[in-house]
């Protein structure tokens, strides 16, 4: 359950985040030595955009504390499900190159399915595996793309490749 008060906090975080991003862009641009002698260098737009970010961030902060916000009456959010989906994606990109497309994507599928209330883990894993294998075969052999096989698998299938 998320209350109106935490929605305001969320809006404040967004505003603060934009101000921080604006500051980061300005600092990074200042630290980058400028090259070239064009009339307008590569630093002008970063400064303009960082200025815009700070202004918008300030106006959001003002709205967060004194103005109209979305869902001011609060909004129920199942943050556990959000965390599970996010974790599934993180596991996939962390394991993709070592384990390969098929196992890491199967884990992603099962994690997301669980987050949406699918309780039969074995069935979800099986469907995930089938989908991952199907996409791997279609895209790598049918469409000539390069989904990773996984460094572990490569080492197993060609042991003398060192």
């Amino acid at each position: 359950m998320t209350t109106g008060r935490s929605m305001r906090a969320g809006e404040a975080v967004l505003g603060g985040g934009l101000i921080a991003l604006g500051g980061l862009i300005a600092v990074e641009t200042m630290l980058t030595p400028s090259v070239g002698r064009a009339v307008v260098g590569p630093a002008l737009f970063p400064y303009l955009i960082s200025g815009g970010l700070v202004l918008v961030g300030l106006s959001l902060l003002r709205e967060a504390f004194a103005g109209a916000i979305a869902h001011a009456e609060g909004l129920e959010l199942d943050l556990w499900a959000v965390a599970l989906v996010a974790a599934g994606l993180a596991v996939q990109f962390l394991l993709l190159e070592t384990l390969g497309w098929i196992p890491s994507t199967t884990i992603l599928f099962a994690a997301v399915a669980r987050a949406f209330g699918g309780r039969r883990l074995a069935v979800n894993l099986a469907i995930g595996l089938a989908l991952a294998a199907f996409t791997f075969v279609t895209f790598n052999y049918g469409l000539g793309l390069n989904l990773p096989e996984g460094s572990i698998v490569e080492r197993l299938t060609s042991p003398d490749a060192e």
């Binding site: 994606l89 990109f93 992603l108 399915a113 989904l147």
Partner: peptide
């Protein structure tokens, strides 16, 4: 559950195959 899991499988597939690197993911 299967629909959204599938959407994310294809989303990660699309993002990865753009440049074949994990940074995009």
């Amino acid at each position: 559950p299967w629909l959204y899991a599938g959407i994310l499988v294809f989303s990660s597939l699309g993002a990865y195959t753009l440049n074949n690197n994990v940074v995009d993911l």
